[in-house]
Amino acid sequence: MKSIPNIFGQYQEGDSFLHRLDPRTKIISLIILSGVVFFLVDITAYIVFTLLMVFVLKLGRVRWRSLWGSLRPLSWLFLLIFLLQLNTPAGLRTGLTVIYRLVLMLTLALVLTTTTPIFSLTMGLRKLLTPLDLFEQLGDKIAFMLTMALRFIPLTAEENQKINEAQRVRGVEPSPKNLPLLVYILLVNVLKKSEELAGAIESRGYRLYPRRTSLITLRFGYRDIVALLVVGVFSVGASL
């Protein structure tokens, strides 16, 4: 079975400065820096931001190979955006700008996922959403929904692949003509699985204990203060 391309990267064991940051710091920095990307206007700003990215990649010991690995599967998307933008007045320039912004944001996401195990990533998210718990445990529900969404992406992809293979074995080549049938089977199968999944979740006592506890305690240290300060100062500087 061909696996789904790893656009969002995969955790790499390590103990770099970035690995040791609190996941919350990294998530917040990702959000702020992604915002900054949209305020980059002149060429100097782009150069400075790019240099910062190179520095961050070094700091997290992220390999160039994994960056390339996550960008390559999207090349068709980049091409499409580029071609679409070519028809507009400032064509070439806007096209390149949009693509480069996307690349920068993907790089940021990649840094987060390669330096943070999924476990602490979800825990960090969960903690950041805690204030929402005031409204009927909303934070908890959102975190759980995100977890489920994460589960359903590969589940649907696998199901799709299985159906494709089953059809090919019977000599049916994928064509737009039998797309409706394929979508129908896919939907039925995914629904059946989600029903079973609901049973599995219920069986293990989902939401039965009123007060949620968490396993790891996140530690917000001096490193996090330094990191957030740098991100803050940089963002203000970049948007001036």
Binding site: R204, G205, L208, Y209, R211, R212, T213, S214, L215
Partner: peptide, 9 residues
Amino acid sequence: GPLQLGVSP
């Protein structure tokens, strides 16, 4: 399971 069922960390 244990987290949902209130087992201590």
